[in-house]
Design a protein around this nucleic acid. Structure first.
Lengths: 157, 157
DNA sequence: GTTCTTGCAAACCCTTTGCACGTCT
DNA sequence: AGACGTGCAAAGGGTTTGCAAGAAC
């Protein structure tokens, strides 16, 4: 399922590089290290999870740089930033599955992706039209619990 | 529009009181002061906005109590807690408009309510069924900008 | 009278910022 | 060389917590 939209890392690097150039920001090692890690981590992550991940294979990078780079990657639409419940923001690659929303298990916090974009897009457009707004994007989150909580390996109890 | 579902404060007080009793929590003045304020404030609010509101008419109450009571009111389903974008959580009465979602203006932060529940409920149920989850609730947020930004009195520029 | 709740301030977590040093152009 | 980015630690905002004083039971 995740493979449907294989991420092209060379393409992402190019897009990032292009964005940086256009904004007169510099192409630093740290920024591309973050981009690579973001691709490798291959799931939703918080800034701190990414920090730990990057440190995990010995790379030296500060939280400040993590945050700043995540911000850049979000601004150039390589990442999408979410605020689910909980304290910290979560990020994911915008390209990986271009159109999906999230189901959050209220028992274990697991996040599952699904697609229902056409219908949601219709609703979004209807609502905006009737209220006099230009739609930009939406977020649709379903909160639910597993039918089989025993299967829920992530369970925090 | 807001009047459609007139909030019955006596009913809310009763529900809160019942909940507190059942949980062996105490019926304190502060808790009911918060409940009353939440009804009077009549829009989405953050914990701090509520704190300022309550202080505004001379009531003495601490932030700690505000937070703790908001938590209780959320647990007993009198309030709903949202995480829109931005730093702080926002709350609103669950009963006031039992079924609505939110359009957030990305220019000014204004929050507008709308109803599209039947369709969203269908989607929610379909998704949960196919993934093997029991649906609890959903949140659907549309991010958009006014067609007429000049009209946007809240604009933060 | 005992237990729970409050208020205050300090602690806490996530995130941003200031500054000196290092890196990119 | 000059300007920008980094790392560190400290500050910041929202929220939670520990503890003594006060209120509910």
């Amino acid at each position: 399922m995740q493979q449907e939209n294989q991420v092209n890392i060379a393409d992402l690097r190019e897009r990032f590089s292009h964005y940086l150039k256009k904004q007169r920001y510099r192409n630093t090692q740290e920024r591309f290290l973050v981009l690579d890690s973001v691709v490798n981590i291959d799931k939703h992550f918080s800034a701190d999870e990414l920090y730990i991940y990057v440190r995990g294979f010995g790379a030296k990078i500060s939280r400040a740089t993590i945050y700043s780079t995540l911000d850049l990657l979000t601004k150039c639409n390589i990442l999408v930033k979410h605020r689910f419940q909980g304290d910290s923001a979560h990020y994911e690659l915008a390209d990986k599955m271009p159109n999906h929303d999230h189901l959050i298990c209220t028992e274990c916090g697991r996040i599952i992706e699904f697609q229902a974009i056409e219908k949601l897009g219709e609703i979004q457009n209807e609502v905006c039209q009737s209220l006099g707004f230009k739609p930009l994007k939406h977020s649709f989150n379903i909160f639910a619990v597993c039918n089989d909580p025993g299967h829920c390996e992530y369970n925090r109890a």
